[in-house]
């Protein structure tokens, strides 16, 4: 009896101690940055409007955004329907999740520190949920976008969807070109062509004028900004095509929609590097 009493008392004290330790742990401040990862010379992190590739610590510099504000569905009439319209964004008719929150955010922070968690972004409107998940392999990151339609009428409304676009927003001043052929989609000075060749190993062929919506032949596009080190290469999948939207500065990776589901998934691969790797 005495033993049971002692054991019970000990266990109660243990539970109290561990509970206090647990509460203390929950009190820890989470990092000021959301989950981030290095992709070559770039870093990938989630922000309130989506995922972004950027150079940390350089102050205000160009960045590359993947956002539901730019991504869209195409219906059978060719109309583009943004996942998150500007009106909904301005009226804050959405919720976005992109950073760890306590208590489980503590575990997420630890996982991210050890490279077991990469950035994500999830936005929810009345009609749909769009989530972006990332997986990193060295200098390469695979971004998977999943759209879930929340209401039957919405599914019905998009019955006519023919394509889904995953986009990367680029900056004015960027040089965008076909990774394989080197064909640029805008004019580039000879001096810059030489510098790009010397620095990164690409032979860029300048366009004589800005082409409005060119398609790449190889499904792979490279972006270089003279004010940033390194480059980004966007590689589309075998069933996707890549469109350069010069008006809105978007590299659009178009995935055709086959079948009728309440859920759409599309994937792209983005590589960031400092020197071109020539495969033999």
């Amino acid at each position: 009896m005495n033993l049971i009493f002692k054991l019970t008392k000990d266990l109660i004290l243990l539970v109290i101690t561990l509970a206090l330790v647990a509460v203390a742990v929950i009190g820890v401040r989470l990092p000021y940055r959301s989950v981030f990862t290095a992709v070559g010379p770039y870093q990938l992190e989630a922000f309130p409007t989506g995922l972004a590739f950027f150079h940390y610590g350089r102050g205000e510099t160009p960045f590359y955004n993947i956002s539901p504000l730019n991504d869209y569905l195409v219906d059978s009439d060719g109309n583009r329907l943004a996942h998150l319209s500007k009106e909904d964004y301005d009226a804050k008719n959405f919720t976005a999740k992109f950073q760890p929150e306590k208590p489980w955010g503590i575990v997420d922070t630890a996982k991210a520190f050890f490279g077991q968690l990469t950035p994500w972004f999830k936005v929810e409107t009345d009609d749909l949920t769009v989530s972006y998940q990332t997986t990193r392999f060295g200098n390469e990151v695979i971004i998977t976008k999943t759209i879930n339609f929340k209401k039957p009428q919405v599914v019905s409304a998009v019955e006519s969807t023919t394509a889904s676009a995953l986009t990367i927003w680029y900056n004015s001043g960027d040089i965008v070109f076909d990774s394989q052929t080197g064909q640029a989609f805008m004019p580039v000075s000879e001096e810059l062509v030489n510098q790009i060749n010397k620095t990164y190993g690409f032979t860029v062929i300048p366009a004589s004028e800005i082409v409005s919506e060119p398609l790449t032949n190889s499904g792979s596009v490279t972006i270089i900004n003279p004010k940033l080190p390194g480059f980004l290469t966007i590689q589309a999948g075998f069933n996707q095509e890549v469109l350069i939207n010069q008006q809105y500065h978007l590299v659009e990776v178009i995935t055709p929609v086959v079948g009728r589901l309440g859920r759409l998934t599309s994937t792209i691969t983005i590589t960031s590097n400092q020197k071109r790797t020539i495969l033999k």
Partner: peptide, 11 residues
Amino acid sequence: TQADLTIDNLK
């Protein structure tokens, strides 16, 4: 942190 030189920097 260490960073790399850009095309403009190299020029």
